[in-house]
Structures are given as structure tokens and as C-alpha cells.
Computed example of a mutant assay.
Amino acid sequence: MRENWHVKVSVLAGASALALSVVVSTPAWADESSGGFEEVQMPGDVEIIEGVAPAPGTVDPLLGGTYKAAAVVSGACLGATSIYGAKGCYQPRGDVVWSRDTEKDGMSAAVGIYTDYGRPAAVCINTLGADTWATCNKDYRESGKVRLRILRYNGDNGKFYQPESWSGWIPVDGQY
């Protein structure tokens, strides 16, 4: 009888510890807000570019289908990365950076673009509102690589905020 009591207590203690660890260590999903925004410092020489709406009939770079808003996007959109409130990707043909705002929270989607050859960073800001894509057309060295940094931007104070996420390095010409 005493052996069964120890087994029951051990099982109960183990189950309690497991339940507590799940509650304490479960991270927020990329599409969930962590509850607050933390300011992110950007390089002093970062170029801020206000994105423009894609032309009507443009294909959505991540979802396929026609963008609701005359040219069709040619080539895949690479390095797709997302966080709460923002998505971004890079289109090799034309060196186009795509920025999507996914939340009505008063903030804008921001996609930072960094190179592996020392060019100053740039940030494509989508100020078009929630559920929209914006594009920024850049010209990068074909032998180089770019990396995307997705975050949030507050146009009222000009500051960037976490959550943030980075893509891997993407060949400018799209050839891996």
C-alpha cells in the first residue's frame, strides 16, 4: 500500500511540473502580439523608403492570385519572413522588396534590407494601412546577397519596434 502512495505522489509531482513548464515556457506565435513593443535601434545611416502600392493586377508575392489593388510579378518572392503585424520578402527580378502590414494597430510594417557587401541598410515602410502590400524598388549588386529584417514602425515618433525576425541570406540574383 505504501509503494502505491509513493507512485501516486511521484506521478502527481511530475504532471504538475510538466504543466507549469508548458505555461511558463510557451512562446507567442509569430502572428500573436507579445503584449508590448520594445524599441529597436537602427543604424544611423539607414535609408527609410516609403513603399508604394503594387499596380492593379500584380500577383500577390506570397499567396498567389491577383493583388486586389498591370504588371505581373515575375519570379518568386524569396526570404519570406513574418512577425506579429508584418510580413516581408524579396523579389530578385527587379530587386523589389515587399512589405505587408497585417494588423490594425496604428503601426506600420517595416522591412529592413541589409547587404553582405557593405552597402548602407535601407528600410521599406508600408504606410498604406492594414491588409496591404507595399513595394520598394532597389538596385543591388548582382553578385551580392541581401538579408531582410521584419519589424514594426511608428510613423508618429519615427521609431522601430520589436517583435522582429530576420531572414537568411538571399542571393540578389535569386540563384542559390
Score class of each variant (00 low, 15 high):
Ala109Gly: 14
Thr115Glu: 04
Cys124Leu: 13
Gly51Gln: 09
Asn4Asp: 07
Lys87Ala: 04
Ala13Val: 14
Thr81Asn: 06
Trp169Tyr: 00
Ala121Thr: 10
Ala69Met: 13
Gly14Ser: 14
Gly94Glu: 05
Ser108Leu: 02
Val7Gly: 05
Asp139Tyr: 10
Ala53Thr: 09
Val22Ser: 02
Ser167Leu: 03
Asp101Arg: 05
Val52Asn: 12
Tyr117Asn: 11
Lys87Tyr: 01
Asp131Ser: 10
Val146Phe: 02
Ser21Thr: 11
Ile49Pro: 02
Ser108Glu: 09
Gly85Met: 02
Phe160Ser: 14
Ile125Lys: 05
Trp133Ser: 05
Ala55Glu: 15
Gly75Trp: 08
Ala86Trp: 05
Glu164Val: 05
Gly44Ala: 12
Val23Ser: 02
Tyr140Cys: 02
Val111Glu: 10
Tyr161Lys: 12
Ala76Glu: 13
Asp131Asn: 14
Gly112Cys: 05
Arg141Met: 05
Lys138Leu: 11
Ala109Ser: 15
Glu3Val: 06
Gly79Ile: 05
Met42Phe: 09
Val146Arg: 01
Tyr90Met: 06
Val73Met: 12
Lys159Val: 10
Glu39Asn: 00
Asp156Gln: 08
Tyr84Thr: 06
Ala30Pro: 00
Cys124Ala: 14
Pro61Gly: 07
Ile125Gln: 04
Thr127Val: 09
Gly155Pro: 07
Gly57Met: 10
Gly44Ile: 01
Leu62Thr: 08
Ser108Arg: 02
Ser16Glu: 04
Asp105Cys: 02
Tyr67Ile: 09
Thr58Ser: 13
Gln91Pro: 09
Val146His: 02
Gly75Ala: 05
Arg100Trp: 09
Ile150Met: 09
Glu32Ser: 04
Ser33Cys: 01
Asp173Cys: 02
Ala30Asn: 01
Glu3Ile: 08
Asn126Ala: 14
Arg141Lys: 08
His6Ser: 06
Ala28Asn: 08
Gly44Phe: 02
Ala71Ile: 11
Gly112Ala: 12
Asn137Val: 11
Gly75Gln: 08
Ala30Ile: 00
Gln162Thr: 15
Trp5Asn: 08
Ile125Tyr: 10
Glu103Val: 15
Gly168Lys: 00
Thr115Leu: 07
